[in-house]
């Protein structure tokens, strides 16, 4: 799976595990419109660390927090590229 697909899958897992409906997810979908609340985003980052082996938020100092799922995927791709 590509980084984007892994992120989408992780979001689906979080939502289905608590019986929430999963909205249509696309790279343009805003993270705030993905059905996740702020704690869910924290959970997502922990899950992605397990699956992708990296946490781009760990050392703080991000110029800008990604807004869409596509931007989030790009951030992870860049980060694992650097690692």
């Amino acid at each position: 799976m590509q980084t984007y697909e892994i992120i989408e899958d992780a979001i689906r897992t979080i939502l289905t595990e608590r019986d929430d409906e999963v909205p249509q997810l696309k790279p343009e979908t805003q993270i705030s419109a993905s059905g996740l609340d702020s704690l869910d985003v924290a959970v997502l980052v922990v899950r992605l660390e397990d699956r992708l082996g990296t946490d781009p938020f760990k050392n703080g100092a991000l110029a800008r927090f990604p807004r869409t799922l596509g931007e989030l995927a790009e951030l992870y791709t860049q980060h694992s590229g650097l690692a």
């Binding site: 595990e17 608590r18 704690l39």
Partner: peptide, 30 residues
Amino acid sequence: RRSSIAGTVVVAEIISEAGTDEKSLRATIM
């Protein structure tokens, strides 16, 4: 587990009985 963006997240590790369907066990647990 310390999350880099929002404090600590509660995580659980489970040993399940042999032959248990993990998907439905997870749902029951939740």
